[in-house]
C-alpha cells in the first residue's frame, strides 16, 4: 500500500487527479491530493463523513473545480475547459447520483431516453428499444410509465443507473449507490455494478460507506484521510497495520480476509 498515485503503476489510468487543493469556507478539504483510477477497474472511494468523497466525484465530473491541481479524464484535462468543453468530456461519463437525480416531472421512460433524444438522431422505435434494453439490464419491468416519485428507493437507483449507462459511457461515477438501501437492494446494485464492469469493461468509480460491498467489488480502494488519499487493493487495506485504517475497516476487514483465505484453501 502506498500513495494513491504510485499504486497503479503498470495499468492505464482513466482518471488522474494531481496535486488537488480545495477549500470551502476557510476549511481545507483536499491538500495536495493525488490519485488515479485505472481503466476497466472498480475503484471505491472511502473515508469518514466530510472527507470529500462526493466532492472528489464531482471534481471528476467537472461539476466543481479545484482551487489548484489537475484532473484528467480519459486524456482530457478538465481544469482549462469551459462548460462547452466539459459537456464534450461528459459524453464519455455516466453518473449515478445518491438520490437518482431523475427529472421528477418526466416518466421513467422519458428520463432514460433523454440523453438519446438530446444527442442522437435515433428513430423513436430505436430509442424505445435502447431504453427497454437498459431497463432490462438493471432488472426493471413495467415502470416505464411511472414517475420517479412512484418508485421505491432501490428501483429509483436502478432507473437512474439505466439512465447513466444509456449512452454506453467509458466511466461510471456512482455517488453512494448503497446508502439507505436494504441488504437485498445493496446486493442487487452491487451485482449490477460488478456486471457492468465485467461485461462492458466500464471503469467504475464508487463512493461508499458500505464496507463489505466495497471490499467485495473494488479492484482498488482509495481511502481519503487527512485531506489526502492512500490507496491499495482491498486485501492490502484489510491487512493494513495502520491503526486508523484498521479501525476504519473494522470487523468487515477480518471477515473479508477470512473469505479470501477460505476461497484460496478451497481452490
Amino acid at each position: 500500500m502506498a500513495s494513491a498515485q504510485a499504486a497503479t503503476d503498470g495499468d492505464e489510468a482513466h482518471v488522474v487527479c494531481e496535486s488537488i487543493h480545495l477549500g470551502f469556507g476557510g476549511r481545507d478539504v483536499f491538500v495536495d491530493l493525488n490519485c488515479e483510477m485505472v481503466a476497466g477497474h472498480v475503484t471505491v472511494l472511502m473515508g469518514t463523513s466530510g472527507t470529500g468523497k462526493s466532492t472528489l466525484l464531482r471534481l471528476i465530473g467537472g461539476l466543481q473545480r479545484p482551487d489548484a491541481g489537475s484532473i484528467r479524464v480519459a486524456g482530457s484535462e478538465l481544469s482549462g475547459l469551459a462548460e462547452v468543453g466539459l459537456a464534450e468530456v461528459r459524453t464519455r461519463l455516466g453518473m449515478l447520483f445518491q438520490n437518482g437525480a431523475l427529472l421528477d416531472s418526466m416518466t421513467i421512460f422519458d428520463n432514460v431516453a433523454l440523453p438519446l433524444r438530446e444527442h442522437t438522431k435515433l428513430a423513436r422505435d430505436q430509442i424505445a428499444a435502447e431504453v427497454r434494453d437498459r431497463l432490462d439490464a438493471v432488472g426493471l419491468e413495467d415502470v416505464e410509465h411511472l414517475l420517479p416519485g412512484e418508485l421505491s428507493g432501490g428501483m429509483l437507483r436502478r432507473a437512474a443507473l439505466a439512465r447513466a449507462i444509456i449512452e454506453s459511457p467509458e466511466v461510471l461515477l456512482c455517488d453512494e449507490p448503497f446508502s439507505g438501501l436494504d441488504p437485498p437492494n445493496v446486493e442487487r446494485i452491487e451485482g449490477l455494478l460488478t456486471r457492468l464492469n465485467r461485461e462492458r469493461g466500464l471503469t467504475v468509480i464508487v463512493t461508499s460507506h458500505h464496507m463489505a460491498s466495497s471490499l467485495r467489488m473494488g479492484h482498488r480502494i482509495i481511502l481519503l484521510k487527512d485531506k489526502a488519499a492512500v490507496s491499495g487493493t482491498p486485501r492490502e487495506l484489510a491487512m493494513s497495520e495502520d491503526s486508523e485504517i484498521h479501525d476504519f475497516i473494522g470487523a468487515d476487514g477480518a471477515a473479508y480476509l477470512k473469505t479470501l483465505s477460505d476461497a484460496e484453501a478451497a481452490s
Binding site: R58, G61, L63, E83, L86, A87, E88, R90, T91, L93, G94, M95, F97, Q98, N99, A101, L102, L103, D104, L114, P115, E118, H119, R163, L173
Partner: peptide
C-alpha cells in the same frame, strides 16, 4: 427543488445545458 435534488447537475452530467 431541482437544484436541491441534483436534477440540474444530472442534466449537466448528461451534457444537457
Amino acid at each position: 427543488a431541482m437544484v436541491a435534488t441534483e436534477q440540474l447537475d444530472g442534466l449537466r452530467m448528461m451534457s444537457v445545458n
